[in-house]
Design a protein around this nucleic acid. Structure first.
Lengths: 199, 199
DNA sequence: TATAGTGATGACAGTGACTGACATCTACTG
DNA sequence: CAGTAGATGTCAGTCACTGTCATCACTATA
């Protein structure tokens, strides 16, 4: 199973299909077996039955492959915010967007956990994750601005949302299965309200 | 000036002093002249009258050199929070810590601006900056926990502080000299209060 | 004053991520 | 059956970063 024999044209395509997902699977396996830094791109490619060069045709760099879903979240956030009633407060638009993304995580809880364990073990990957989070916040900022929310507010609201989500997500990943991500998000948002209310 | 002749033992030390700051200066100059990616470590070292190997004895990697002051801020934040009266709300402890760091930036406004321009032009450097911000938030979380603030609140409060500071900082860097960083921080915190207050 | 450190640096040979240029291979198309 | 296109392979190269050992100027100690 791990040493798949590569044959050609068993079906309708010229090469063994799913090169991308084969690379993803090989990489995740190797990262979990021996760690991110101890895995070379050549090894990943070999396990996937491809070459190093092909790896870099699918992924801009070695870290990027762990952060696919990001684009899905991005679009989901933007669509959800764009579809909110104009009467909603900015923070409620953001909350709705976060809420809309919950199924994406619930549907892949186990994979998400494995991925997060790999990231937690490597500072370089944490760096990349922060960049991805910032990109999501930026996307939500844009969506809010398109809804007429002025600039410092749009950015702050989006980042507050990402902060609440991240806090909830970390708890959810490390919690038993019964924990509900939606509820954890709402809790985080409530706590943020209390925190900033101040004296 | 840029092609300093290196001589030995003009004073009390065996080698030309300030190797570290010479490397920092050379790097910043080159990054500004031709960009971060277009500058090799060998070039930086050469301009500083040293070798590539020595560069990596002073800095763990090529990006790290732009993020010195971080340690200063870290200690300042932790000391300030530790010295706050126990009656203060967590968010006020954080606000005080941020406020205490303002002179650090005011005293080096021009250098900070140059540095920030370099970072803004390079995604890899932005990634590193996000990591540094996260580290500062983590430090403030720790400080709050030591003051008895429980866990989700400590982390959220610290991150709200960092968010407010970052927002203020971005505006301050791109604003005329008259703008006051302290005031921008207070504004951001006020806006966060309004945002999370909700419906 | 000879001798043995000591600490910063240089020299050098790696490894591994990433890139550019070009060749190849298979399936489809006419 | 020739031609094309898209995915892949090959290969050479750059550059960040590391391990190891040599060197060099001074310093402490006998």
């Amino acid at each position: 199973m791990s040493t798949t024999v590569i044959t050609y044209n068993r079906g309708m395509s010229r090469w063994e299909p799913n090169a991308r997902s084969r690379l993803e699977q090989a990489a995740l396996d190797l990262y979990r077996e021996r760690g991110f830094d101890q895995t070379t791109v050549a090894e990943i490619a070999q396990r996937a039955g491809l070459t190093e060069r092909t790896f870099f045709r699918y992924f801009v760099d070695k870290r990027e492959m762990l952060f696919w879903g990001q684009e899905i979240l991005r679009e989901l956030y933007m669509r959800t915010i764009a579809a909110m009633p104009g009467s909603a407060a900015p923070i409620d638009m953001v909350a709705a967007a976060l809420e809309a993304s919950v199924p994406v995580f619930n549907d892949r809880r186990e994979i998400v956990r494995q991925r997060q364990a790999v990231i937690a073990a490597n500072p370089g990957l944490q760096e990349r994750e922060l960049l991805k989070r910032a990109a999501l916040a930026s996307a939500m900022s844009d969506a809010l601005r398109q809804r007429g929310v002025p600039d410092p507010i749009a950015s702050l609201t989006a980042n507050v949302g990402v902060l609440a989500f991240t806090t909830a997500f970390v708890r959810w990943v490390n919690a038993p299965d019964e924990y509900d991500l939606s509820q954890l998000i709402r809790e985080a948002l409530d706590q943020l309200k209390v925190i900033t209310a101040g004296t």
